[in-house]
Amino acid sequence: MPKIKAEKKTRVHETIAKQGILFNKDFGQHILKNPMVIKSMVEKAAVRSTDTVLEIGPGTGNMTVALLESAKKVIACEIDTRLVAELQKRVQGTPLKPKLEILVGDVLKADLPFFNLCVANIPYQISSPLVFKLLLHRPFYRCAILMFQKEFAQRLVAKKNDKMYSRLSVNTQLLARVDMILNVGKNNFRPPPKVDSAVVRLEPRNPPPPISYIEWDGLTRIAFTRKNKTLGSAFRQTSVLTTLEKNYRTHCSLHNKDIPEDFNIKNKIEEILESSNADKWRAASMDKDDFMSLLLAFNKNDIYFA
């Protein structure tokens, strides 16, 4: 995914300068200014009067105010203390103030509070870790309406055999139903970013799939190293075989299982792939059900990825 190059902190967008707020691009601060986009995101979230909404990166509060008008409570997580002050100033002396709670700090390092919904314009550089922090969060919430860089959003929703299909796609779709709901041009922000954006709806699967996500992630990491190569090729890499043999021996030791004297990890992996008819499969053409069946086949044969 192409990254938005950070511009020098001394370069300030003229419109922002007039407002007296210098946005820090190191924090991915591109503020959504179009009220129609904000309205659409809030409507797509179907905010109820009983909801607690988590907003990440509220900026100057354009989205926050719209959420406060519909929700019981909004918890806004903001890393920039200058924007925290702007947000506090915006609701000061209004009926909205008691409904707003502000968490100051890095959302990736924070323990998230309880919430029913998440609605946010995500700073581009934290998109991937934040998606999985939200998808692995418990207790479950109803859905998340999130704006990302458009290419990242396309990867989230991509299906097998699509050129955008990746480990991000299948890992996300394992844990959630994902839909693209809105395209947003760069001119809807100030300062405008280099690329267009898109809004995605994530609905966590509840209950979650009955597998270890750490195991799943280990399998897909190997498979997508070269997504257009066969799994037989991917699993013949020396580093992969070394790790899997170590995991196998550890598992057998912990469960008092004997290891045959002539044990060969390469042969064992090939047997599992061939018996599953998966040796010629390619990650680019596998959906989550394919990966699920393969993971179960490995685990049944005491091969683990974590």
Rank of each mutant, 00 (worst) to 15 (best):
M1N: 09
K3R: 12
K5M: 06
K5S: 11
K5R: 15
E7D: 10
K9W: 15
I21E: 07
I21R: 09
L22M: 10
F23H: 00
K25T: 04
F27W: 11
L32S: 08
K33N: 03
K33T: 13
P35C: 09
P35G: 10
E43L: 02
A46H: 06
L54G: 08
E55Q: 08
G61I: 13
N62Y: 11
M63W: 14
V65D: 02
V65Q: 14
L68A: 04
A71Q: 00
K72A: 14
K72H: 12
I75H: 05
A76S: 14
I79Y: 11
L83E: 05
V84A: 07
L87H: 03
K89M: 01
K89I: 01
L96I: 03
K99A: 12
L100W: 12
V104S: 07
V104L: 04
V104H: 06
K109V: 04
D111W: 01
F114S: 14
C118M: 08
A120Q: 03
I122Q: 02
I126T: 01
L130R: 03
F132T: 02
L134R: 03
H137G: 04
L146E: 03
F148A: 02
V157K: 04
K159F: 12
D162N: 12
K163F: 10
M164G: 05
S166V: 09
R167E: 05
S169T: 09
N171V: 11
D179L: 05
L182H: 07
V184M: 13
G185W: 12
N187I: 05
F189G: 12
F189H: 05
F189D: 09
R190P: 00
P193I: 00
P193N: 07
K194Q: 14
V195Y: 07
D196S: 03
S197P: 07
L202P: 06
N206Y: 04
P208Q: 00
P208A: 10
P209L: 01
P209F: 13
I214Q: 10
W216S: 08
F224Y: 06
K227I: 11
K229A: 13
G232L: 03
T243Q: 11
E245K: 10
R249I: 01
R249S: 02
T250K: 09
S253E: 11
N256R: 03
P260G: 04
F263G: 11
F263S: 13
K268D: 08
K268H: 15
E274Q: 14
A284C: 10
S285P: 00
M286A: 13
D287E: 09
K288Q: 09
K288C: 04
K288T: 11
D289A: 07
D289L: 13
S293A: 14
F298Y: 13
I303K: 03
I303D: 02
I303W: 06
Y304D: 03
Y304M: 00
